[in-house]
Nucleic acid binder design. Structure first.
Lengths: 211, 211
DNA sequence: GTCTATAGGTGGATAGAC
DNA sequence: GTCTATCCACCTATAGAC
């Protein structure tokens, strides 16, 4: 079936290709030439849509955050409870990793020292949103006896976010996605509260079905 | 006092400068020109000591691993117990972060897709050694009731390694080392066994003194 | 061991025709 | 919107003098 090009469609394709490139090779690991080759246009054409690489990078983060927020809203709607929310959150990462990719923002965090200031600001915002969402889930989940942990939800959220990003990075480095799955299962198992633990044992296991 | 140059001294200086550059900017984020400027020699001189950037990268990892193994042996000698071993392990990371740097190998793991094969091999080895050491501490610590956790020591080691690396990356991205400290304290607190927990309460706190 | 000089390639970015 | 052509800065690496 013939693909009809919408206005702005090329810009979206560029973002899609660039996002995958950053998520695999990093912001300093790809060039306009890479995108041009895959899209079969010239480098000059890309500069029409994204005047500078900095601007492209900024738009990449914003797009990634928008998609992520949508995913989180989907989880909030569909999840069975707060423990399930964490499991679904982990499954997002597992899905990205299954495509051989890193979290866009985890990748950029590693390159933070070399990023233009315009990108650093929006990058921060992505992590803030993640932590805030996680902290909310943790706080509500503990109140409902679904989650069990000591200390402030915000601190556990910080720990979880870093642990997920780090587990993802090492799993990809090893070329073994199960390294992420196992780490995520460990982390979540430690958070399982009495309510969920009972249901888990009733179902006969503690697996989080992240696979 | 006049500094006497030993043979091989220049090579060591190059490695020192290059290591810091990789740990802050990444392997794709620095060049021979950066090292040359800081050492006040020409780029050509650097190629005498390290013919290719790949070779320099390989040597960087080997050096970093050697230093790290020494540090681990120091911990094994001096630590009061297995919980203290984990705390000291975390403190190594905290020290690196205090200098505004990332773990060399954590940085390289992010850039894994763009690394030459010769570097990937030695990089893997660094993580294997870390996991093996952590797993040993965990196994012995659990037996001694100093550490408490479910599942295989190896899996918890995988989780811990990823969590430390990830926490480090995000803390540096935020420019806030305490983000690492808090995450590490959370992780270790969850591993505290009855023996250590008792001593901890007796001393009146659960802080790991990572600061 | 360090230098000058340079090769050969790629980086992001722009001008101007179509 | 896309092209050709081009700029200039930077990259890794080498040759050969000192």
């Amino acid at each position: 079936m013939q693909q009809l090009l919408q206005p702005g469609d090329t810009a979206q394709r560029i973002l899609g290709i660039a996002s995958r490139l950053v998520q695999t090779r990093g912001f300093n690991g790809f060039s306009y030439a890479d995108i041009a080759a895959e899209l079969q246009v010239t480098k000059a054409s890309l500069h029409y849509h994204f005047p500078s690489k900095t601007e492209l990078g900024r738009r990449l983060i914003e797009r990634y955050e928008r998609n992520f927020v949508e995913a989180l809203q989907g989880i909030d709607r569909e999840a069975a409870g707060d423990f399930d929310r964490l499991a679904r959150y982990a499954r997002i990462y597992a899905g990205v990793l299954a495509d051989g990719q890193m979290c866009l923002c985890g990748m950029l965090a590693a390159e933070h020292a070399t990023l233009p200031e315009a990108m650093r600001e929006v990058l921060q915002h992505y992590f803030d949103i993640n932590e805030h969402w996680l902290a909310g889930v943790l706080r509500r989940g503990r109140k409902a006896d679904e989650l069990r942990f000591e200390g402030a939800p915000r601190e556990v959220a910080t720990m979880l976010l870093g642990a997920f990003e780090g587990a993802m990075m090492l799993a990809r480095s090893y070329g073994d996605p199960r390294r992420f799955t196992r780490a995520a299962e460990r982390l979540l198992a430690d958070l399982r509260g009495p309510a969920v633990a009972g249901a888990g044992r009733a179902r006969g296991g503690s697996k989080l079905h992240l696979h």
